[in-house]
Design a protein around this nucleic acid. Sequence first.
DNA 1: TTGACAAATGCAAGTTATTTGCGTTTACTA
DNA 2: TAGTAAACGCAAATAACTTGCATTTGTCAA
Lengths: 155, 155
Amino acid sequence: MKPPSARSRRHPFDAEQLLREAGLKATSPRIALLRALHAAARPLSAAALHASVGGDADVVTLYRNLEVFAAQGLARRIEGREGHALYECVDDTHTHHHHVTCTVCGRMEDVELCVPPRVLEEVSKKARFAEIQDHVIELYGICAACQASLTKIRP
Amino acid sequence: MKPPSARSRRHPFDAEQLLREAGLKATSPRIALLRALHAAARPLSAAALHASVGGDADVVTLYRNLEVFAAQGLARRIEGREGHALYECVDDTHTHHHHVTCTVCGRMEDVELCVPPRVLEEVSKKARFAEIQDHVIELYGICAACQASLTKIRP
DNA sequence: TTGACAAATGCAAGTTATTTGCGTTTACTA
DNA sequence: TAGTAAACGCAAATAACTTGCATTTGTCAA
Ligand SMILES: [Mn+2]
Ligand SMILES: [Mn+2]
Ligand SMILES: [Zn+2]
Ligand SMILES: [Zn+2]
């Protein structure tokens, strides 16, 4: 018998509460968006999120709220390789991490590697930067599934 | 007396030769673009490159060639944080590296940190990726100059 | 409970970076 | 030096966001 996953542990995910805790009005477009972000297993584009919330929010509202969420630390924006932005939830069940992306199908997986603090210090010194505030690591490769189908076509 | 810099060592930078070696027709828009990329100290946007080559190439041609260059390994595309792409030269004087970007003024510096091969293997195994082909690391912080002016305003 | 009011929303219109279509030009090759 | 595919420039189209503005809605103090 499996233990409950981190994602499902705290059961009735209280979007309204989280919004108010962040000092934001708990409107229904926001509630729907925050739920969609929380439910997602992978970073999603604005278009995907719009599809996901259905009629619960206009795309414009969605863009505005993604910006607000990012500013309040409720969500994180990632620049996808195809030029458009992706968003993912930030909460106690989704801590700091990075991604591997399949260059064939676009599938993204979380990975736990990170830049060690002492490397950051070193860079800060060498590049003469007063402070390193943030970083992004993105890995690109071929996922097992795509590798399998590629092998089938051109072994 | 300083030794000549890596950038200036091979003096008459032969763009035409490099293009032909890559199997590309050495047209004047391409020569101008490759020279501009080579001369740049930092990754440049398509707009900046267009300004840099002046009347020597239409923006459309420039976009098409940036794609071709990236495919042939003559240039590298970076997704800047503001949503638009940046391009930089790839040649023996510009080897594999990553960047720190100032979140205030946008200045980019090269940094030499990288992901160790054994970490890549580990990720490949854990995420069930057949192969890791590529990676991006971008650091964000505040450069010395911007820190100084910030301190002046709000000490 | 209510109602004032700022904050948030939806729709329409505008930007901006990048792409596509197509007729013309140009660099390579024989 | 001519033939030809590749590359070009111009105009128009997309795609991903953003902005303006009139209308709605959560919040909070009364
Ligand atoms: Mn993630
Ligand atoms: Mn660089
Ligand atoms: Zn894949
Ligand atoms: Zn700076």
